[in-house]
Structure formats: structure tokens, C-alpha cells
Design a protein around this nucleic acid. Structure first.
Lengths: 125, 125, 125, 125
DNA sequence: GTGGTCTAGACCACG
DNA sequence: GTGGTCTAGACCACT
């Protein structure tokens, strides 16, 4: 069963997005595996203290991306192959890093300075 | 007068946030200076094709952060000292980089891999 | 639910300020408590015969002062601890009384005379 | 000539109101006397670093209240009798104190507490 | 001319 | 249902 132990809700981004992202990051990190079972909507709703509709939306989005499958009465489970994992990895990483790079360029930060910053902050977090 | 020549509205984030960020980035890049005059609400509103109230909101936020000052009848202008510029710089950079680093760590990306990614994507943008 | 029964709009000060002040005074008077629910924008807007945006502005200011919290889809509610209540109390009282005292001193009114005035007018209002 | 030495512009209230109030308080304090000469609009504008129109508005208001008189080419001067001084005194004092008393009552502050507060703050200002 | 407030109402995201 | 954003435009106070 997939764990939400180290998951805490932050604000700024919608809760359902945070859940989706948590699943994706878990898959990339190798913590969540193919065929692993998702908690039931009802259970996760109670666990996180979040409206069932919010959980429902997260699960629906994951389904639409082909990351999980659900069957009435049987629950939901992860369905990813190696190719998909690579795609998710690129999607997350290149998105995030691209936003950062664009922003820094607009602030006239140089590439070496950017790298130095990343290395600095990496160790402090 | 501060220029909005290279500014284009994107969606995803509120327009007023984009304006606030544009000003902050301009200050950090050294393109916008202390005492420089902001365009009037009406002018900028016409320039960007955006409702005056949206501009008003951006200006109010900047004012609340002490980055600009406004006076009814007189206009608005930038009011930042070196210390503030440093603070804004940290706020933007450490925020962005921190989010990225945290996200990457959760995906079990190593530091060298992260740096390599940043360098790769930097050149492609 | 917080009551606005004894609240009537006056002019001279912005409506949103009056709402903010009403909430603060209610908290100090012990009529409004922590965790109590604020009326929704739409409801209060209809109740006071005021535009929803005006209510929105009042709520935003209260939120920025940490007096209420809002969550899209869920509503708004009061979030104050004892320390904050003390701070609000000081803010309102010392502000008002300070302005008065300063003004009176500039008119060369003596302290005893000031107290006598306050007592006189107190009973007549 | 009436002095504006101890006068500094604050924000929150219009500048012209502050000037009007400064004159009234000076009269009540006995610092400004009947027949005393007002600085020329041009001079005061330069002295306070304020737009001439703002000074003009203050003078106009004072004229309308019969507190000063102006004559083209000759300047402006104070014209108040004892009765007027009494009226101005009441207007300022009862207004200010009334606002304070009403506000405090709404916060469930008792009369003795109010007096104690005034005395406390009086000494600290 | 400037900024500040307010109305009237639409649309969206969220729970 | 909720709050958040945005448009369109009026009116006012201030300089």
C-alpha cells in the first residue's frame, strides 16, 4: 500500500495537484512501484483530512494520465511501465528546471552563478 | 519611466503577480532603479490591455512590500535601497531554487545530476 | 456565525475599513471568538447591500493581519490567539487614544481637563 | 507671522486638512492670535514642499469657516473673536473625544478603564 | 492629470 | 456551495 506518511498539505497549489505530484515523485524515486495498491478514496480522504471530492479529482487526473487504474469494488492501483516513468521524469524535471532557468536569465544571472546557487542551496535544504 | 516592452502576459499565474514579479526582476537585473517613476495605472492598463483594477492590485502589493510608493494625485515611484534589493534577490532566487532542490531530492536525484540537468536545459532555453 | 446585526455603514471612512474595524472590535469585546465562521462573501454582501468585492477587500485585509483565514471552496473563519487579541486591543486603543492625546496636547489642554472632557462626553453618548 | 516650524506632514489625512487643523489648534492653544498674518500661499507651498493648489484649498476652507481673510495683493490674516475660538474648541474636542468614546464603548471598555488608559498614554506621549 | 474606492457582474478553481 | 481573479466603468479626493 502506498504511504502518505511524509506527505503534508501546503498551500499555494491545489491539494489535488499536490497529491498527483506526490505520486509521480514517488514513482520516479522508486518508492512507488507498478501494481502497487492506492489507498481507497475514502481512507485517504480521512487520512489527510481533505474533502472526498478533492481526492476523487486527484485520482481522476492520475487515471487520465494512465498512471493508475481503478475498478469499482476492487480499488485502484499503479500501472506504469519503464517508458512512462521516463516520460513523467522528463515532464517534472524539465518543467521545473525550465521555469527556474528562464526566471534567472531575466534577472541577468549567469550560468555559473546559477549553478553555484543551486549547489549552495542544495546543501542547506 | 519604467519600460514594459519585453513584458508579455502568460496564463497560469494571475496577471497582477506577473507584473509584481516583472518589477522585482527588473530591480534585480539593474534595469529598474530607485526613484524611477512607475507608469500611471491608466497608462499601463492601456499598454497591457488589462483592466485598471488589475494594475491597481499589482501596485498595491508592491506598495505593501515597500517596493514602490504612491501618492494620490502625484503618481507612483520605486523606493528601494540596497538592502531591500538584496532581500528581494534572496526572496526570488532562494524561493525558486529551493522549491526545485526540494522537489529533486524527493525524486532521489543526486546533486551532480541536478547540476547537469540545469546546465543542459540552460543552453536550450 | 458572526453577526452584523448592530452594524450600519457610515460614510467618511471606506466601507471595507468599517468592516475590518467591526470584526476587531467584536473580538476585543469578546463577542467574536476564535474558530468562529465568517459569513460568506455573497451572504454578507447581500446582508449589507454592498458589492461582493468590497467584502472581499475587507476579508483580504483581515487575512493579511492574520485575523481570519480563508480557503477556496471552504469559507473563512476567525483565527486569533490570546496574544493576537492583546495586540489588536493595543493597536486600536493606543492608536485612538494616542491620536486624541497628541491632539489635545497641541491645544495646550491639561491632563485633568482632558479626563474631565472624556467623562463628560462619555455619559452624553 | 504664523510659524509652521513644528508642523510635519503625515499621511492618512489629506494635507490640506492637516494645515487647517494646525491653524485651528494653534488658535486654541493661544499660539496664533487674531490679526496675525498667514504666510503667503507661495511661501508656505515652498516651505512644506507641497503643491500650491493644496495650500490654496486649505486657505479656502479656512476662509469659508471665517477663520482667515484674504485680500489680493495684501495677503491673508487670522480673523477670530472669542466666540469663534470657543466654537472651534468645541468642534475639535467634542468630535475627537466623541469618536473615541463611541469606539471604546463598542469594545466594552468601561468608563474608569477608559480614563485610566487616557492617563497612561498621556504621560507616555 | 493622479491614485483610491466602489458598483455590477462574469468566470474559474476548489472542496 | 465557497473564495479568487478579472473586466468595465463610475465617482471621488488629492496634487
Amino acid at each position: 500500500m502506498i504511504s502518505f506518511e511524509h506527505f503534508t498539505i501546503e498551500d499555494g497549489t491545489p491539494i489535488y495537484s499536490q497529491i498527483v505530484r506526490h505520486i509521480k515523485q514517488g514513482i520516479i524515486a522508486g518508492v512507488i512501484h507498478n501494481r502497487e495498491e492506492m489507498p481507497s478514496r475514502r481512507l485517504l480522504s480521512a487520512l489527510l483530512g481533505v474533502n472526498p471530492n478533492t481526492i476523487q479529482k486527484a485520482y481522476r487526473l492520475l487515471e487520465e494520465e494512465g498512471i493508475i487504474e481503478s475498478q469499482a469494488g476492487a480499488g485502484s492501483w499503479v500501472t506504469v511501465n519503464e517508458q512512462q516513468i521516463g516520460a513523467i521524469r522528463s515532464q517534472l524535471l524539465e518543467g521545473d528546471v525550465g521555469v527556474l532557468a528562464k526566471s534567472m536569465k531575466q534577472m541577468e544571472i549567469s550560468k555559473v552563478e546559477a549553478v553555484r546557487l543551486l549547489e549552495d542551496i542544495w546543501d542547506r535544504i
